[in-house]
């Protein structure tokens, strides 16, 4: 083998150089948002084009106080957490159960029903948003929590992910449970669910990523502040006169900070979850 010579160090150095440039590009907007949120409003735009854009002069939390004075931020935040939380939890229960019935049980209509689920895999939400909107009006669900939760609990992609995972569990374990007299339901809830923790984590994270930023749907079905989630709330806030960029960025930071903390704590899980979404293709 060659010693660590210049010919090996050069590619390494250039790798680092490229990575550092990319880091700057990826992190700059985030840093800019955080710094702007700490600055007096009138300085945000004035300093945006200078090196001072990334250095808060006279940092204060005034903008954060202003956000709470101007809008009901707490309400929007709780709305988003509640809506996303219900979709994630409901989805974990409903979709894992269905996936188990498809992966391991014999019943008439199984092939047909599973074909139906697979067919829906390619149907993006946008393709049904408009008719679903009119359907929801018929239900009398406009301006509510359920309109933002219930239609999204059953999810073909989640079923497919669970299904793929259940197939990898050795059948012998279930056969042993069946010998002990456990029915399908008991086997599922006491044996399979604990074994499938990684699949639950993956689906939870992907569902969260899919729905936390929902904008189009709440924009269509909710015009009441009471049920408004964060993405729509910040879009409204940035047009609310007087337009103060410091306040808007403070709103943004408060909206994303808890999520960033959760992401940093579970980042291995996030990366694994996203990676597994692409493996099967």
């Amino acid at each position: 083998m060659k010693p660590r010579s210049a010919s090996r160090l050069l590619p390494l150095a250039s790798s680092y150089a490229v990575l550092l440039v990319c880091t700057a590009v990826f992190f700059l907007p985030i840093a800019f948002m955080i710094v702007a949120s700490l600055k007096p409003d009138e300085l945000v735009l004035r300093e945006a084009g200078t090196w001072r854009a990334l250095f808060p002069g006279g940092a204060s939390l005034q903008n954060y106080r202003d956000v709470f004075d101007r809008v009901n931020f707490g309400r929007f935040f709780v709305n988003s957490v509640f809506i996303t939380g219900c979709i994630v939890l409901g989805g974990l229960v409903v979709n894992s159960m269905a996936a188990y019935a498809f992966a391991r049980m014999q019943w008439r209509g199984r092939t047909l029903c599973f074909g139906f689920v697979l067919a829906l895999l390619i149907l993006p939400f946008e393709a049904i948003a408009v008719p679903l909107f009119y359907q929801m009006i018929e239900f009398g669900w406009r301006n509510s929590y359920q309109v933002q939760i219930v239609p999204f609990i059953a999810n073909a992609f989640s079923i497919y992910l669970f299904y793929s995972f259940f197939l990898t569990i050795p059948k012998e374990m279930e056969e042993a449970a069946a010998m002990d007299g456990a029915g399908a339901l008991r086997t599922f809830f006491t044996l399979i669910v604990p074994l499938a923790k990684p699949a639950f984590a993956t689906v939870a994270i992907l569902t969260f990523l899919m729905h936390w930023g929902n904008y189009l749907w709440p924009l269509m079905v909710v015009d009441h502040e009471t049920y408004r989630p964060l993405p729509v709330a910040i879009a409204e806030f940035q047009t609310l006169p007087p337009i103060q960029w410091g306040d808007i960025m403070a709103f943004g930071v408060m909206m994303i900070l808890p999520v960033l903390v959760v992401f940093l704590v579970f980042q291995k899980g996030f990366v694994k979850g996203v990676a597994s979404s692409g493996i099967k293709g």
Partner: peptide
């Protein structure tokens, strides 16, 4: 971790930060 970070940003927030940029 750094390159993945923007993924957890809702698009609405991304749009607004970039509007200022």
């Amino acid at each position: 971790t750094l390159f993945f970070m923007p993924v957890v940003f809702p698009m609405a927030l991304v749009a607004i930060v970039w509007k200022l940029l």
